[in-house]
Design a protein around this nucleic acid. Structure first.
Lengths: 170, 170
DNA sequence: TCTAAATTGACAGTATACTGCCAATCTGGC
DNA sequence: GCCAGATTGGCAGTATACTGTCAATTTAGA
C-alpha cells in the first residue's frame, strides 16, 4: 500500500504550526503590554519579577527563577536593571555568604500598585478579539498545556521552591 | 454602591495571565524544537526563513520580514548566519541597487528536506499532552486570535507582499 | 574532620526581538 | 530633469533567552 506523500515544503505549513503561532502570539502580547505600560518603562519580565519579589520578600535569585520559570542567567541582568531603577534591593544573607536576598524598595512597591490597572488592560486586550466563551476555552487549554509541558521547559516552574527561604523545615 | 476591590498583588495572578502563558508556551515550544532538531543546528526562526525563501525564491529581506512576520532588523543577522552556513545566497538585484535577492543554495534546499520530519515531530510534541479534540480547539482559537490581533503586532503578517517581487503588476 | 558534591551568583558567547537612525537609491509630482 | 518623500539595508543600543564555565561557599558523606 502506498505511503503518505511527504508534506509539501511551503510557508503555509509554517503558518499553521503550533510553534509559529505561539511565537507570533507572544510577540503580539509583548507589543500590547509595552503599549499599555509605556508610561512606566517596565517590561513584562521585569513586572513578573517585581510581583514575585513582592509575593516572596527575601527570596534569592535562583529561587526567583524557579518561581517565575525564567532563565537564571537572564534573571541576573533583569535584577540589575530593577536595581538601577531603584525598585529592588539586594542584601547579602547573613547565614549563607553565597546568597543575596531580594526585597522591593518603596518605589518598587509603589510602581507595582500603579502599573496594575495598565497590566490588566493589556491582558484583556490580548484576548479581546475572541468571544468571551472562547477566551475561557483558550485560557483553560493553555493553562493545561503549559502545566503538562512543564518538564519540557528548560526552566520548569517550581512555585513551591519559594517557601524554602523561610526556613528549611520541609 | 461599592466598587470592586483592587485585584490582589500576587504571583498567582501572573500564573493565570495570558501574556505569561504565551511566554511560557513559546519557551517550551522553542525548547522542544531545539531538542528534536539538534542534529541540524537550525533555530526555529532560521527554519521559518529557509521555508519562506524556498516558497518565494528571489524575495528580498524586507518582504521576507513581512511574509513571516519577523522583525526586519533581526532578520538581517538571521540571514547572515544562514549565509555563513551556506544555506542562502544574496545577489544584488540588477534593476534596483538597494535590493538583495535571496535564494536557497543546494545545501539549503537539502537540509530543508532532511529536517522536515524532525520539525513535524517537534510540532506534534508541543500539543501531545492534550486530547486530540482539544488540540484542534486550541489551534483553531490560536489561529483566530493571532489573525485578529495581526495589526497589534509590530510586524504584521503580509503574506501577499511576497508576490510583489515577481513583477509589480498589481 | 576532610573532602567530594552541590549550590549560588557571575560571566562569556550566541541568537532572537525591537527602537531609532542613517546613507544609498528609487519614484512621483512638478 | 529635479527634488521631496519613500524604500532598502545596515548599524548601534537595549532587553530577553539560553549554553556553558567558573570561583566562592556550603553541605553531606566517608
Amino acid at each position: 500500500m502506498p505511503s503518505k506523500p511527504p508534506p509539501p515544503i511551503t510557508i503555509d505549513a509554517v503558518y499553521a504550526a503550533p510553534g509559529y503561532l505561539f511565537r507570533r502570539m507572544q510577540q503580539i502580547a509583548v507589543s500590547i503590554f509595552m503599549e499599555e505600560c509605556k508610561a512606566f518603562d517596565l517590561t513584562p519580565v521585569q513586572y513578573a519579577a517585581l510581583i514575585a519579589i513582592h509575593t516572596h520578600p527575601g527570596i534569592d535569585a535562583t529561587r526567583l527563577s524557579a518561581v517565575i520559570a525564567f532563565d537564571r542567567s537572564t534573571l541576573g541582568s533583569v535584577i540589575e536593571r530593577l536595581q538601577a531603577k531603584d525598585y529592588v534591593e539586594r542584601k547579602p544573607a547573613p547565614e549563607d555568604k553565597r546568597i543575596k536576598l531580594l526585597h522591593l524598595t518603596k518605589s518598587g512597591a509603589a510602581i507595582l500598585r500603579e502599573i496594575i490597572p495598565a497590566v490588566e488592560r493589556a491582558q484583556a486586550r490580548m484576548l479581546e478579539p475572541l468571544k468571551p466563551a472562547d477566551r475561557k476555552t483558550l485560557m483553560g487549554l493553555l493553562v493545561q498545556l503549559v502545566d503538562l509541558n512543564n518538564e519540557a521547559s528548560r526552566v520548569p516552574l517550581r512555585a513551591e521552591d519559594a517557601l524554602e527561604h523561610l526556613g528549611k523545615a520541609g
